[in-house]
Design a protein around this nucleic acid. Structure first.
Lengths: 234, 234
DNA sequence: ACAAAAGTGTTTTAGATACACCCATGC
DNA sequence: GCATGGGTGTATCTAAAACACTTTTGT
């Protein structure tokens, strides 16, 4: 009992950003809460929420976040970054979240603080599967995130701020582009994440100078217009 | 029992940086662990540590950090910034920390994660008092931080990285200079925090352009050389 | 007059921005 | 030959860096 009380109080939540190269959109992976097998006495209104879970007694925070991510995406080795810890005593006391807590938590009254992580993936690289808590998994455009359970809207917001701040320094782009990519792909990615647009020539110049990418001899194939030169990260 | 288990597992730690204007140094406030009134069976070896405490059941994280800070310094309203959550399951299992845990924790085996905050103060503005856990309180130069309890050395290191990263954007300087200050004072501060040195003329130019400070008509008084113009933050 | 620190301007370099036309390819 | 996106250069502006001498004050 003593040894198990840790597990009630600390969770991790993951903001998994998916880059949709096709449509040049940045999306976030949300789960839709699962209805109980037997209908509970109150109406259960499923909400969207971030994937997350309580941290196990002997588990590191980073490890817990990785576990959550793996359960959902079956992908390992993604670069998860902790960005903030949310601990308002009221964060887990709102009426809208009552029912879910009653259904899924051994101690629904317990105060829970959550350590938040974000990561970025190429949307088409993963086929998320609803885990134990979810009846469904959906991608939502980061520009139009629906109301979420708990304080998850603030978590997403802060995650976005963080990514934008660290895009340059954090080698984020490398996780979101294929091995070989065109300048246009790189530019689209930056524009999607930062929600702006750049001048093509200036953008190219910037990256050719910064020696983080190398020009390949190879060119794009199978496109119905002038094929673009390919680049790769150093 | 159920209701109290939260309090075992989450702490806050504060990295309180003190700017020593006189000697142009950036220091960190550490406590020296207190020996028990009655000597414990094992030898108790006091260590230096960051001020911190367990978070109370109904207390927000920010509020807990403020409480710790207030207890130590009797100063309120300082701008505390959360910067990372440290949660390695082993962080509280090292032999060197065993005795202290036995003495001061109701459940010395409990896993504890800590949410870390930093703040900056003018060193001479506070007269820290040893609280309940401390037999002493000391300022240590950030360039020579001694070995600390738990994982506190990594916490200090990360706090420093964070300050340096956010010095410009976070209006940190405003908390560390008097209402009216000279260019030299501002420059000294920047040099102490970033651990570099700047060209006087370039430094001046930079700040006159950024309109965050305003030139006053007033000048320094009581100095034995040419008195400098005073500035103030907007 | 001397000691001490304040105050100040120009030149160079690098990066950021603005801007428009021709090119290579598949059909 | 046409539609589609690829690829490129120049001019301007702003910010950062390097650099040294004169001024003001108290004693």
């Amino acid at each position: 009992m003593k040894r198990n009380s840790f597990r009630k109080h600390i969770s991790v939540d993951c903001v998994i950003f998916g880059y949709d190269e096709e449509n040049n959109k940045l999306e976030a992976l949300l789960i839709e809460q699962k209805e109980p097998a037997k209908r509970s006495p109150m109406e259960f209104v499923p909400q969207f929420a971030l994937p997350g879970d309580l941290v196990n007694e002997d588990e590191g925070l980073d490890a817990a976040a990785e576990r959550v991510l793996k359960e959902l995406t079956h992908v390992e080795g993604l670069n998860l970054r902790q960005f903030y810890c949310f601990g308002d005593p009221m964060r887990v006391k709102q009426a809208k979240d009552r029912e879910w807590l009653n259904l899924y938590r051994s101690d629904p009254e317990a105060r829970v603080i959550t350590v938040a992580y974000y990561t970025l993936v190429r949307k088409e690289m993963i086929r998320p599967v609803p885990g134990s808590f979810a009846r469904n998994v959906v991608w939502k455009n980061t520009k139009r995130v629906p109301p979420l359970a708990f304080d998850h809207n603030s978590i997403v917001k802060r995650a976005l701020d963080n990514i934008r701040l660290h895009l340059e320094s954090d080698k984020i782009a490398q996780e979101l582009l294929p091995e070989k990519f065109t300048m246009r792909q790189l530019q689209n990615l930056y524009e999607a994440i930062l929600n702006t647009s750049f001048d093509k020539r200036n953008f190219t110049k910037r990256f050719k100078k910064d020696d983080v990418i190398v020009e390949l001899e190879e060119k794009q194939k199978g496109v119905l217009y002038k094929p673009a030169r390919l680049y790769t990260f150093k």
